[in-house]
């Protein structure tokens, strides 16, 4: 009310813009480019698509859906051995992967690697290789190399886990408190002792958390590795799909779902207990 004269609104511009015209233009150009790219990709992707099949999809879906229920409960006993195999594949694979991941992580972390210029890039390459290749592809390769069976699945899971565990672990190593390490070094401890007393206590909770987390993921993954011949539930899934035994497929999927839910619960419990 008693506002001084120079505060009255008329003195100010009525225009206020969030962005300058130039950035606005760039932004619009960017969006336009994205839309164009999308349209082009869409056309490339769908050039061989048979649209008749796509139109037919709803009736196909209804057909498969109606065949899938009810699940064939009597199939369950046959699935127990594959389930056990799947769990073993995940657990042993995780164990193997974790054991191999630890040295890789220490070689990849900036503060523990023996050589930033030589060793670290190699360790990082191992991590990227392991991470970019899905465990199903690892299994595909290993089944071709060492033959179908659980061993191929275990090795596939292990190889895929290395990158995941090593990446998270080396980030944890780089975040360790340098003062604690310094203090242990100052006592005249050797390299191995510094690892044992300086790094290990700081890393243990993260390490356990990461391993359990990966185990949880590996349960999901090992359930389907059988699709390419690596044993476990996936093998049964593949067999049922081949003979179009949809009620059995439903049963297997329900079992996988149940296992995943339980393993998720276990991993959440364990992680909470550690931290």
């Amino acid at each position: 009310m008693n506002e001084p004269q120079h505060h009255s609104p008329q003195h100010y511009s009525q225009l206020w813009q969030w962005r300058t015209p130039r950035t606005k233009l760039l932004l619009w150009a960017g969006w336009l480019a994205l839309v164009a790219l999308f349209v082009w990709c869409w056309q490339v992707m769908t050039q061989d698509t048979i649209w008749m099949f796509v139109q037919d999809a709803p009736s196909q879906a209804a057909d498969i859906g109606s065949r899938m229920v009810p699940p064939r409960w009597s199939y369950l006993p046959e699935l127990l051995k594959p389930l056990w195999d799947t769990l073993n594949m995940a657990t042993l694979g995780t164990l193997g992967g974790v054991i191999m991941a630890v040295p890789v992580a220490f070689l990849a972390a900036r503060n523990t690697t023996p050589s930033v210029a030589l060793v670290r890039p190699v360790a990082l390459f191992i991590i990227v290789t392991s991470r970019s290749i899905n465990s199903l592809i690892w299994a595909l390769l290993l089944v071709a190399v060492i033959g179908p069976g659980l061993l191929a699945g275990i090795v596939a899971i292990a190889l895929r886990s290395i990158g995941f565990v090593a990446k998270l672990l080396y980030e944890a190593i780089e975040e360790t408190d340098a003062r604690q390490i310094e203090a242990i070094t100052a006592t005249g401890a050797g390299r191995a002792q510094v690892l044992n007393y300086g790094y290990l206590p700081q890393l243990l909770p993260a390490f356990c958390g990461i391993s359990v987390f990966r185990w949880d993921i590996n349960i999901r993954e090992s359930a389907i590795l059988g699709l390419v011949g690596a044993g476990g539930l996936g093998l049964k899934l593949q067999a049922s799909l081949n003979v179009l035994a949809w009620p059995q497929v439903t049963m297997i999927l329900l079992l996988i779902l149940g296992t995943v839910v339980v393993s998720e619960w276990v991993s959440a419990r364990v992680r909470r207990a550690i931290i």
């Binding site: 698509t49 099949f53 999809a57 196909q60 498969i64």
Partner: peptide
Amino acid sequence: IIAIFLVAMFGFGPF
């Protein structure tokens, strides 16, 4: 698993 079902419904291919 989703892919298996969608291939069964929509036919083989990138769609």
